[in-house]
Design a protein around this nucleic acid. Sequence first.
DNA 1: GGAGTGACGCGGC
DNA 2: AGCCGCGCCACTC
Length: 114
Amino acid sequence: MAASLKLDKSDFFQRVYAVVRQIPFGRVSTYGAIARAIGAPGAARTVGYAMNASHNMPDVPAHRVVNRMGMLTGKHHFAGSDTMQRLLAEEGILVEQDCVVDFEQRLWIPEPLI
DNA sequence: GGAGTGACGCGGC
DNA sequence: AGCCGCGCCACTC
């Protein structure tokens, strides 16, 4: 038996990256939304953890991921303190006081990953 | 191998 | 109404 009842744990990160990559240009998503999309609603923290490891993945727009309040909680983890905000500004997303302006309007909810 | 941590989210006081 | 604490899941020491 055994075989593969459960997928490899590394796949968790891969799923996170897959979802983040689907975030459209000019939109943002949340850790919780991504966690739910991969079938782990309570793993929002782990999603952030995966983001930290996504630095080797240029295709993963980690700057488009914010917390449920639209705050750039992870901006401090980028190369520069303003890097995340700048990247968002490049996409037309305004940020004030580390908060995405019209967050609910910019928010993009990913579909559950199959 | 147990305990702590972390780019979160939610419930309780 | 805000502030505090716990849970979740993967990873490191």
